[in-house]
């Protein structure tokens, strides 16, 4: 599947720090708050749209630079994006996830950040998400892809 899956302790440390950085950002940007997600779907404020759009632009510019300069990762391997393919699940699954996002106010990242922040109700969201994953594992052979 992937070419390289084990990392040095240093790289794992770096990954942990990036997770920490992202977790702090999820809270400080308020993307973890149900109300922000709700107001996004109500078109009440630009906040969430702003965060997501700017993140995409910064991500795209970074990828452009990485490709132009042929930057390598810490393991000296070339950086390559593995495209996510199109199938019917992108539509159906995407829509189902969107419904859950509107109800719980959390996409997967914020679920973890909420738990870390001590919001114990988020454990329910997480349990639900695990059940949903198992449901998908079970039904996958019968679902249109």
């Amino acid at each position: 599947m992937q070419t390289n899956n084990t990392f040095s302790t240093r790289a794992y440390g770096g990954i942990l720090l990036i997770g920490l950085y992202f977790g702090i950002l999820l809270v400080k940007s308020e993307v973890v708050r149900w109300q922000r997600v709700h107001d996004m779907f109500l078109f009440k404020e630009v906040h969430m749209y702003g965060v997501i759009s700017v993140a995409i632009v910064v991500g795209a510019l970074s990828m452009l630079l990485i490709k132009r300069l042929e930057v390598k990762d810490m393991q000296q391997k070339p950086i390559v994006y593995e495209p996510k393919p199109f199938h019917k699940g992108v539509i159906f699954g995407g829509m189902i996830f969107g419904m859950g996002w509107a109800i719980t106010g959390a996409c997967p990242g914020p679920i973890y950040a909420q738990i870390g922040a001590g919001e114990w109700l988020a454990v329910l969201t997480f349990i639900g998400a695990m059940v949903g994953m198992y449901l998908y594992a079970w039904l996958k052979p019968h679902l249109p892809h």
């Binding site: 996510k84 393919p85 199938h87 699940g89 992108v90 159906f92 699954g93 995407g94 829509m95 189902i96 996830f97 969107g98 419904m99 859950g100 996002w101 509107a102 109800i103 719980t104 959390a106 996409c107 997967p108 990242g109 679920i111 109700l121 988020a122 329910l124 969201t125 997480f126 349990i127 639900g128 998400a129 695990m130 059940v131 949903g132 994953m133 198992y134 449901l135 998908y136 594992a137 679902l143």
Partner: peptide, 18 residues
């Protein structure tokens, strides 16, 4: 939260990402 969580888990895995 439980029901919404199920939709999040099922949907993201079916869509292949969040």
């Amino acid at each position: 939260l439980l029901a919404g969580g199920v939709l999040v888990g099922f949907g993201t895995r079916y869509a292949g990402g969040c």
